[in-house]
Design a protein around this nucleic acid. Sequence first.
DNA 1: GCGATCAGGT
DNA 2: CACACCTGATCGC
Length: 691
Amino acid sequence: MSSFQGQMAEYPTISIDRFDRENLRARAYFLSHCHKDHMKGLRAPTLKRRLECSLKVFLYCSPVTKELLLTSPRYRFWEKRIVSIEIETPTQVSLVDEATGEKEEIVVTLLPAGHCPGSVMFLFQGNNGTVLYTGDFRLAKGEASRMELLHSGGRVKDIQSVYLDTTFCDPRFYQIPSREECLSGILELVRSWITRSPYHVVWLNCKAAYGYEYLFTNLGEELGVQVHVDKLDMFRNMPDILHHLTTDRSTQVHACRHPKAEEYFHWNKLPCGMISKTKVPLHTISIKPSTMWFGERTRKANVIVRTGESSYRACFSFHSSFSEIKDFLSYIRPVNAYPNVIPVGITLDKVKEILKPLCRSSQSTEPKYKPLGKLKRARKIYLDSEEEDDLFDPLPVPLRHKAAHPITLEPGVFPMTALSQNQPEKLMQSIECCKAESIQSSSLANFIDCEESNSESEEESEIPPTLPRALGSEEFPQQSADVDVPQWEVFFKRNDDITDEGLEIFPSSTETGGSQSPKLFSDSDGESTHVSSQNSSQSTHITEQGSQGWDSQSDTVLLSSQEKNIGDFTSLNKGVKKAKAKENIPVSQMEQNVLFPKDIHSDVKSREQETSIVPSVEGPTIVSDEEQLPVEERLLSLSSSADSQNSSDFEIPCTPEAELPRQEHLRYLYEKLAKGQSIVVDKRKCSLLDT
DNA sequence: GCGATCAGGT
DNA sequence: CACACCTGATCGC
């Protein structure tokens, strides 16, 4: 639950995700996503009144968030005052004090947050520096490195402060199975059940909240079923979601709700009232999405846990795990990181303590223990699972430079650039300097119910489903009206490369006569716990063979019985393969990748497209702050290389360390080490533009 | 009648 | 575990 009060130190005249108290004086409002805990005060009469007299106050959000928000009649009064900003399009916003006429310009960029439809992070750039408000987010490891607009000049931008979703920022929540793992687990459970007969139905016990849609759409796509929901008109302009939903109760997959749903379910009745189909009683199982987490060294267990005869919990998280947060933050390396959420069971100070070493300032002040007697560029032993397994020493300071300040503009919003969304991605390194030292395992069941509500319940829209909404085009003629059909993919990239690992635990065909429930818990490997009772999840906390390499590599594998077969590089290769399939990297660039080590989540980014903010339609010219550095030169070339010297004020090493070398290269390095040869790495010269 | 707050539930 | 909502009761405007 967000406890962010709405204002950031650097830009106190804007309010984000809070609309009460001090925020009533804001010059501009931002909404990261449509969950209630981020909308406090948004429909209060005080704000409504203020809006009536302050004609220059607007609410900025993503097109999908605008759509979802305006579906609710209670927020309809915002209609003329919401400005949707396209994802990944730096846009200038004028912050005007209506009393004094004082004006400040700020450039905001919306970055997909992977939390729910429409959810974004806000990157603000202005006179008080660059700050990132993450809203709520779930980003997989390495995803920050693929965000074009977090970078500039081939490096991560110089970010002063990050206002961070710290929901699971506690070592207790070290890992949460990936979206893909959870999805495929649920998928196979549902498949194994509904293929038994037309009378076998599944109730997805989801709470009133946006965020389950990607589950519905994936079930729809994989199983060819539509999901029964109570309402779908909010998605009327989102065909990719709408297509997989239905209000027809006769489907085999339900996500409908009812206050007495649990009671209904006890009597084999669905929340929508369905109890039989053509007079044949239904066989129903319930699947309750819950967050399951695993400690740092815990081998993952199944993403599905049976909690009763016909009840299951399925792993599902809207928020990044501790290791994902750590990866994100240590990549961004802001000067400051402020928690937006106090995780359960720990204090604000404790969270700050956790965040601090991930911030830049800590690097100079906190001496880090380093083992003595290292060989030059000696390989570190793989210690823990989620870490970067740096092949090389982390450099003390990541490269960064400040973005150029855009020129001042008239009030309103101006898209600053028209970057292609499909451009190849940057190859950026992850820098992992700080490993969690001790992870206390919880003896508690490691799941949390997944609930983030958004629905307005009662009197919801009577809008004709087909009518597109008129946008505030008078105010902002540069925004083409009625064309912003929200794109679901922007928020959740679907991974088309889901491996078939783990599928064997859900025999979809074999019919076991005895139990009504699908057979779920084959012991996929000797030690992973699997369960058919409620105490199961505790066993997932069992700490296993401390620092063995292989289990640390298996972080992308959850269900697999192949875990034990994972060699040193299996998951690396898999990662590369995934990235390739997912990101549509041009063949030529993939070929380049072969030549260089790369992080499993990194991709080569085309140089020519950098973060240069170029004029789009009528936007002003904002110049790229620097020339691109050739990515390739910063990669494996371990000999000294002249990285681009353009505009270089300082010589600072680039940060290639975090790229995980490819198998071939590792072997090469190992061979050299085995032969007693030293591996020489020269400091490379890179430019640092900011000061 | 409505909003804010709290207790209780999931 | 206690999330992040919902519902219902109470209180004050």
